[in-house]
């Protein structure tokens, strides 16, 4: 290829020129809104969050207790069998420290985001959430953390009813 082809197609335009309106473009903003039904398992999960509890599902075949809960076991491919309350604490499986907002702009304050293996669920079963009340440099793998809940009145039945997880003083 390299030897034979002299010129590759593609007319580059500078991002700055594009932003400055120097290149003709058509602009569009999709006006769509969504309302997702939270389904059987997650409706219960969210209701329990409102009560300050984390609920999981257990599969009697593989004996896994999984959270987020699901009405079927994706491994055994059969219905899961029972609701099980798990603890609102766990250990940090992995984490990162973000200086980046979703739109790729930079944030002033870092956010620590972690996968937390939940106590009472099967080994390796975790959820993703924010870590608070800790300096980023003090966060470690395997660190014990506990949920910090919003006051009952402020809870809406959302994953954000847990404000964040904070390190447990040992």
């Amino acid at each position: 290829m390299s030897a034979k082809i002299k010129k590759y197609a593609g007319e580059r335009i500078k991002t700055a020129d594009l932003r400055a309106g120097k290149v003709p473009v058509v602009r569009w903003r999709p006006k769509v809104r969504y309302a997702w039904s939270t389904g059987i398992a997650m409706s219960r999960f969210l209701k329990e969050l409102k009560n300050g509890k984390i609920i999981a599902r257990k599969c009697h075949k593989c004996n896994r207790i999984v959270v987020p809960p699901r009405m079927y076991c994706e491994m055994c491919f059969r219905p899961t069998d029972e609701w099980v309350y798990v603890k609102d604490s766990g250990i940090i499986n992995t984490y990162s420290i973000s200086y980046l907002a979703a739109d790729a702009t930079r944030t002033d304050k870092p956010t620590v985001v972690a996968v937390i293996e939940i106590d009472g669920a099967s080994k390796g079963i975790g959820i993703v959430h924010i870590i608070g009340e800790a300096k980023p440099k003090d966060v470690t793998f395997g660190m014990k953390v506990k949920a910090v809940w919003k006051p009952p009145k402020e809870r809406t039945g959302a994953i954000t009813d847990i404000k964040y997880f904070k390190p447990v003083e040992v």
Binding site: L18, W28, R29, V32, R33, T38, A158
Partner: peptide, 18 residues
């Protein structure tokens, strides 16, 4: 209405070259 709903939208803008 017994089902919980979660609301959301796609906040994306587009600029298409001709």
């Amino acid at each position: 209405r017994d089902l919980t709903h979660w609301m959301g939208h796609m906040e994306t803008d587009y600029s298409y070259t001709y």
